[in-house]
Design a protein around this nucleic acid. Structure first.
Lengths: 154, 154
DNA sequence: ATCAATGTAACTGAAATAGTTATATTCAAA
DNA sequence: TTTGAATATAACTATTTCAGTTACATTGAT
């Protein structure tokens, strides 16, 4: 295990909102999203809250048309934007208990690793930055449309 | 949290063995390693066992000179070799509960994500492949030697 | 005023991780 | 062949994280 599945759920949420936005510009409630993602609406709202803080979605609190929608076009949201919004911690963990500072290796290994870990994380993020939610939707539909069951109301 | 700290410990173990190997070619016991890493010898042996399976270290089971040493030169062990040895799972997690297959997005998003996740993981690994244990030792010593306490017996 | 929605605190259950304890096994060397 | 310094491994504990649920207060368009 590594990068939390919460990130996958965030991408699913945004893809679904983008897919819906192509048909109609409206706020959509969390339990409609939960129907596609197959997860609790409360859990999704926690993720949606993080996405809202990062400026990726807009929220309508009360009233009949309450819910969520994309804050900007799906072409302008990269998978890295979403990563930064929901994954706050660095990719690699250092030691839990500090290494022995009396040992030359133990003394210097943490800053040495920090450099390498940082660069590896950047390499991963650059790949994420190269794809948008719009492209993810296109790709998902290409994979899914072949055998999707017809007549399903979103 | 993300990539387990076990990976950091594995890199520390190998760096320490490489550092020691420069002075003398011998098997070194896990509690000597534990003195630098500052962790339980039993836990370290679990990691050392994984490294041995991957062919990165050699083990001497019984007798007076029992312990561990590098199976090949530190220049020929990359940080990616170590990653593959101790991190068995993919970097990104997909959904825990399957998305709704009746939804076009839910149907296709997993294979779409698999492609992108795979490429992101490869990008990260390529950076790890570019550094060897020998280089990590050199870098650690550069960071550590400035203020390390003198007179420490490894 | 209604009520369909969100916001959030508090909880549960499951899993992973780090680390420990105890015991059996290995094998070089005396 | 006995010794003993080491590893191998099972079983256990404590901590944390994560996903997901329940319950309730709040919001605000109509």
């Amino acid at each position: 295990m590594a990068v939390v599945s919460r990130y996958t759920l965030a991408l699913h949420i945004l893809s679904w909102l983008a897919f819906r936005a192509e048909k109609k510009d409206e706020f959509l409630p969390s339990d409609r999203i939960a129907n596609s993602v197959n997860t609790s609406p409360v859990f999704l709202r926690r993720i949606l809250g993080q996405l809202a803080k990062a400026g990726l979605v807009l929220v309508q609190h009360g009233g009949t048309g309450a819910g969520w929608k994309l804050a900007r076009k799906a072409e302008e949201i990269s998978l890295l934007d979403v990563y930064e919004a929901v994954v706050p911690t660095p990719l690699f963990e250092l030691h839990h208990s500090q290494p022995n500072p009396k040992c030359l290796v133990g003394k210097g290994i943490q800053p040495a690793l920090r450099d390498i870990y940082e660069e590896s994380e950047v390499a991963m993020k650059q790949r994420l930055a190269g794809t948008s939610i719009a492209e993810l939707v296109t790709s998902s539909l290409a994979y899914g449309s072949a055998q999707a069951e017809p007549g399903f109301e979103h």
